[in-house]
Amino acid sequence: MKPAKFEYHKPETLEEALALLAEYGDEARIIAGGQSLVPMMNMRLAQPAHLVDINNIEGLSYIRANNGSLEIGALTRHRQVEESSLLVQACPPMPAAARNIGHYGLRARGSIGGSLALADPSAEFPLMAMLLNAEISTRSAVGARSILARDFFVSVFTTTLEPGEIVTQVSLRALGQSEGWGFRWLARRSGDYAIVNAAATLALNGAGQIDRISLALGGVGATPLRLSQLEQESRGKAVGGDWAREIAAQAAAQIDPESDKNASAEFRKELIEVLLAAALEDALRRMEGRMAA
């Protein structure tokens, strides 16, 4: 388990990095935290001829509020997301998601840009990107793009990123003052990728009916899913009785997950129902907590 040869590049600026990526195209890979890329290289499943190390580029690591949105620089490490007081206050699902990624010893190195670009369908940040209407900013030698999360993830480990293109920032919506959230998952062990994970946000109108709801699921398809149709249908629904369970059951009915060695399709469907319902109940509870406070 030793990586194949590559040429190493350490650009100091984004422009230098983009020039290198433009020059080497398909043969180049960006390394940020390297927590997913290097294992692949050690197993020789990835053999880039050129490795462009972006860790020395200034200005790609930040968490800031901008006009009601939260902007996170691509090189921001999971630990920084986990510990950001701004996020805890304005977008609490993000620190919760970060805290659930791998282990303490990995979170110091892994980066949010890397996690999104990897596009693991059961990973935490792609799920949150879908839940929180993320806009992913990219740069390449030919220009800049802003891609909505729902357009960004194409398939397992596949995004719309072009060769030569680099994620620079992710922008997420802040949660409203009276908005609650929930994030639930089932993994075999602490730190493992979830078999299924589910996230939700919830806001009610004055009549105790659902005003705004967002629902996202991971581990049940080739990309994390956002259930926009079901969200639409759920608006105006009163939160009482088995409301959460009913929404979750509808979600499960719509989705057709696949089986693998960790879980059967049937089990994944059951988990959608259990975990999404729990996430919705958490969202309601937190919403009530925020209103009371």
């Binding site: 390297g34 927590q35 294992p39 197993m43 110091a108 190195r109």
Partner: peptide, 26 residues
């Protein structure tokens, strides 16, 4: 050598880091 076991953990600028997931040149 794939970042799971943690035996190779060292500190980089004080932060725990898997030494098997990083190139010395970095």
């Amino acid at each position: 050598e794939h970042g799971v076991c943690g035996a190779c953990t060292v500190l980089v600028d004080g932060a725990p880091t898997r030494a098997c997931l990083i190139f010395a040149i970095q």
